[in-house]
């Protein structure tokens, strides 16, 4: 049963990801992405990461995509819509993707499934995922967590610096 769901979710994710990239219409791309995000959330659910699944939907599907839609609709994209493809370098892109895929295939054999961290699946199941995530983020991983917040701050400052009108 699990395998079936996993297969379904993965297949949809791959197909819709391709559609996002290949679609000529940016608005369509965004909508494809929405479908894709929901299925990613499904994967999280399969892994018993219900908190991540919720965040995925709220933040990505809810907030980011809406922003994307706003941005696209504010811009005039008529010319791009009539173009044959989005870029003319697609063979190269395809080659790059194929190469990365091949690399991944080659290395799969070396991947291990053992854990040497302190959070085994059993333990997570026992104290629930959200609690486990919270504990990990606010104890051992507090430093990366805080750094990430500074990165977001810099991103905001940077966006404002680059976007605001010249004062003088």
């Amino acid at each position: 049963m699990l395998e079936f769901f996993f297969g379904y979710l993965s297949l949809v994710i791959i197909i819709f990801s391709l559609l996002v990239v290949l679609s000529k219409n940016a608005i369509h791309s965004v909508l494809y992405m929405l479908v894709m995000f929901f299925h990613v959330a499904g994967i999280y659910l399969l892994l018993q990461a219900e908190f991540l699944a919720a965040v995925q939907i709220i933040v990505y599907a809810g907030a980011i995509l809406v922003l994307f839609l706003f941005a696209i609709m504010l811009l005039n994209l008529r010319e791009e819509l009539s173009a044959e493809q989005l870029t003319d370098g697609w063979p190269a892109s395809l080659a790059v993707v194929a190469g990365l895929l091949l690399t991944l295939m080659l290395s799969l054999g070396g991947f291990t499934t053992t854990f040497n961290g302190s959070w085994s699946p059993e333990k997570i199941k026992e104290i629930t995922f959200t609690k486990a995530l919270g504990q990990a983020l606010y104890t051992g991983y507090i430093l990366p967590f805080e750094v990430a917040s500074i990165i977001l701050l810099v991103a905001i400052v940077g966006a404002i610096v680059l976007a605001k009108r010249r004062l003088n």
Binding site: T87, G89, A92, A95, V96, G99, T103
Partner: peptide, 16 residues
């Protein structure tokens, strides 16, 4: 830009 990115990828695959 696309050229640069392609060349980076090519370099990567060359090393591989």
């Amino acid at each position: 830009l696309q050229h640069y990115a392609t060349f980076m990828a090519l370099g990567l695959f060359l090393l591989i």
